[in-house]
Design a protein around this nucleic acid. Sequence first.
DNA 1: TTCTAATCGAGACGGTACGTCCCGTCTTGCC
DNA 2: GGCAAGACGGGACGTACCGTCTCGATTAGAA
Lengths: 203, 203, 203, 203
Amino acid sequence: MDRSPADAARARRTSGGPVLQDELTAALKRALYKELAEAGYGKLSLEAVARRAGAGKAAIYRRWSGKRAMLVALLSDLAGEAIEVPDTGALRSDVRQFLVNSCAALEDPLMYEIVPDLLAEAARDPEVGDALSYAMHLLKREKAAELLQRAIDRGDLDPGTDVEIGLELLAGPLYWRLVVIKKPTDDDYFDRLTNKIVGALEA
Amino acid sequence: MDRSPADAARARRTSGGPVLQDELTAALKRALYKELAEAGYGKLSLEAVARRAGAGKAAIYRRWSGKRAMLVALLSDLAGEAIEVPDTGALRSDVRQFLVNSCAALEDPLMYEIVPDLLAEAARDPEVGDALSYAMHLLKREKAAELLQRAIDRGDLDPGTDVEIGLELLAGPLYWRLVVIKKPTDDDYFDRLTNKIVGALEA
Amino acid sequence: MDRSPADAARARRTSGGPVLQDELTAALKRALYKELAEAGYGKLSLEAVARRAGAGKAAIYRRWSGKRAMLVALLSDLAGEAIEVPDTGALRSDVRQFLVNSCAALEDPLMYEIVPDLLAEAARDPEVGDALSYAMHLLKREKAAELLQRAIDRGDLDPGTDVEIGLELLAGPLYWRLVVIKKPTDDDYFDRLTNKIVGALEA
Amino acid sequence: MDRSPADAARARRTSGGPVLQDELTAALKRALYKELAEAGYGKLSLEAVARRAGAGKAAIYRRWSGKRAMLVALLSDLAGEAIEVPDTGALRSDVRQFLVNSCAALEDPLMYEIVPDLLAEAARDPEVGDALSYAMHLLKREKAAELLQRAIDRGDLDPGTDVEIGLELLAGPLYWRLVVIKKPTDDDYFDRLTNKIVGALEA
DNA sequence: TTCTAATCGAGACGGTACGTCCCGTCTTGCC
DNA sequence: GGCAAGACGGGACGTACCGTCTCGATTAGAA
């Protein structure tokens, strides 16, 4: 069972025993991040991570069960940095800003390099899938749902609007373009995509 | 330098000695395909591929330079099997059928298990990325574009319709749902998604 | 564990240094003894010793500097349990009884399982060697020497008898048979060996 | 590494199974011998052995199942170098020379350092015990038995002489002195021990 | 038909990394 | 300050594959 720094902190307060040291945990994560950037997921070596952190391998395995678990933890750390959901007061500008924000998030090297790996792994490992879903989608999904709900409350959208499909329209096309077919975006593209999405929502 | 079966055939015609055996090449690819589905790209072992094919490791390295090159070859082979693009005579039913066909394709183990791995690898290796783009998206993209063009020709859509965005609306939301957030689909879902896409196209 | 202040006071008076708890020291030695018998010196793990004793590793390192030092201490404890040297009034029966007693001692699990380990270690570590010699051989040697001296005093043996060689004849052949070549013994064997040893002594 | 086809051919003939290369096997054994001399059995590291031999660890594990098995093999190699059994034509000088030869063998670092380790291990592992018995004792035992038989044939010893006990007298006291109590030997000692042994044999 | 040369299955080779275990030291909080 | 607990850096374990190399046998084109 992996132990997070939060667990460690709690343990220190309640159990009385020695405990995983938060600063080392952080150093290991920093080392992981740097190794990922240099070597990529496939060639990632936990030995190199430990070496870079000036730690023993056991320090890693004491915290996480392996490569994937350590990555999931790194992701979870960054989950809080959820995509900002704008509240501009108008549906069209909210949608456009949401797309721009999402694009910025997806162009972060972390997302760009690591998320596809985890997505692939998630296809075979439900634990990774769950962590990934929680870290990446649920928070964002809730926030995007707020965006649509506000539009309904304002009367910009019909109360019967299909919110589920709406969320997929907000996320899917941009993800497809950036991650799958890897085409660049620009202001004009955001305008045109916003047009279509708003058109669909209002249809 | 990798050698393809075509090279082998040419070699057979021009050189003197024995030559890479096509049937073995095919068997190796089949073994690769199965190993990918079971183990994933990250844990893929060429030793296991050779073992499954009843071949020696050298048989692989004689043909390809390594893991990625072998994958690229596999992908290229599968490029032809593009998604069927329907022609029902009406935009709405064409779109719905396209979604259903795409869904079937994405639920094929090839897509479901292997493509995410390759997508991840493509994030770091342009050669894989190019092969993947060619194999998966370009052909399909062309065909989906035909679908929209026919609707424009029929007058179902305005001639100024934004085809580029249209293609993303056709592919993105479904991919997002099936591959990223992994929610199930049903007839009702297809109806609702078709509704929104057609609404967007006509907007 | 239920230790009285009196225990601590006694220990403080005895040692003068930090008050290590005697019962814990004893428990650690018992645990060491059992681990040695099960795992052997080579695979001996002080972590396992501590675990078996329900103690922390530090409790061991507070008392001894490492594996070997702990062993030496164990040996010294056992030094007193020297082999009984018989005094039957006649050389032949004294020798025979000494062989039988020695055989019983060598067939004790302590000798059978642990001594060979220590003997091996002693080949490289003089400190272990010395402790082992003291614990196992010197006392016994003195007593066996008494046996021969009594025979000389009685006139059973010539005053010029080579006692040093005599002691090796008493110990060596039996040790060789039991520990090195591991052949069984029986009454007849003791008779025959006694014959030869007495023959040699009288020669 | 510079291996000729002849090496491979020889190896194939020798082993019949997988073609392990004899020269590498020999180099690994040489490295083991040197590491043993430097580090001792307890601190022996197969990684260091492989490093010294310029080989990979797998080269070791392909040949032997672990530390002990590799040692047993080294021993078996040296088994042929059995103790020379002299044939001087007279019992007394044969015995004396046998003791001198045995002493030389037991003072070889291999015997002195390693055999006690294996002896200890043999107490727990019958496989090691058997290999050790064969490697060390059986050949020597047979040869020592010849020595006694020649004496009987010459009439130096009575035909009814107890050969079994005789062998233990030849081996045990010297082993005890050299390995167990670790006292030095000299010419005078050999004379005195020879005296007693011959005395016992003739008794 | 015989020779020749490259491919075949097999697997040894020097390596790298894995994940585990234990070393001997150090730290924390209870008693 | 001893104590149980156990984290720490370090290092070896034995395993799995990597990509390369070599082996004898097969096999198919060229002589």
